[in-house]
């Protein structure tokens, strides 16, 4: 990514964190309503990391995760990724569809569809608030899902950024449900150039 991205000022970082906070707050509320449980979220972490280190944020490149991926279209394109361990995915499906998962642990078509819809709702809530504060039109693509190694799933995002640079700006929020059933990571990774657009829109130079 561009040089200046590596040198964000404290004020810019604060602005990005606040945007992430409001967006994730909206998403957490949406998730909480969906499954009727209290959802806690941590303060978003904003970091600029080498592309090669991005998989380490979720436990290493060969950690198995369920990933729901959406592209963001509009004035500030980017990627949204919701990653969680398989157990969290089962928990979500159980609470949403009310069916008990057998221990053989496969996500059937119905489960996958439900999870993608959750991704859709979370991303929608996040982008809505981001759009509201920046007055930028941001639209999510239809969601896609994969159950695989974290590194392989993150490839999709990393490739997008790799054309332009060797670092990723990652706005990450962790979600935890009150009974620890869900432990998910929500990532917003702006394409290069989008970050500047967002900062300009909120008036932080």
């Amino acid at each position: 990514m561009s040089e200046n991205m590596l040198n964000l000022s404290a004020m810019q970082l604060d602005a990005i964190r606040e945007i992430g906070n409001v967006g994730a707050g909206n998403s957490a509320t949406a998730l909480s309503q969906l499954i009727n449980k209290k959802i806690d979220m941590d303060v978003p972490s904003v970091s600029v990391v080498p592309l090669a280190d991005v998989p380490d944020l979720v436990g290493g490149p060969d950690t198995m995760v369920v990933g729901i991926f959406l592209r963001v279209y509009g004035k500030a394109p980017g990627s949204v990724l919701f990653l969680m361990p398989k157990e969290s995915a089962f928990y979500l499906v159980e609470h949403l569809l009310g069916d008990q998962k057998a221990d053989n642990g496969e996500l059937n078509e119905m489960d996958q569809s439900a999870l993608m819809e959750i991704g859709n709702i979370l991303a929608g809530a996040y982008l809505n608030s981001l759009s509201y504060y920046t007055k930028l039109t941001l639209l999510p693509s239809i969601p896609a899902m994969a159950v695989d190694m974290a590194g392989a799933i993150l490839n999709v995002v990393i490739v997008q950024l790799g054309q332009m640079g060797d670092h990723a700006l990652v706005i990450e929020t962790q979600f935890l449900s009150e009974d620890d059933g869900i432990n998910g990571h929500f990532f917003l990774i702006p394409d290069s150039g989008s970050l500047q657009t967002i900062l300009n829109a909120v008036g932080v130079k």
């Binding site: 090669a52 998989p55 290493g60 490149p61 060969d62 392989a152 490839n155 999709v156 060797d166």
Partner: peptide, 23 residues
């Protein structure tokens, strides 16, 4: 070997790379 990385060596070493998707 990480993403966008390489290693060379000789026997008896092994070289591993984790979690390739489209890479």
């Amino acid at each position: 070997v990480g993403i966008a990385d390489y290693k060379v060596s000789k026997a008896p070493d092994k070289i591993v790379s984790y979690g390739l998707g489209s890479c």
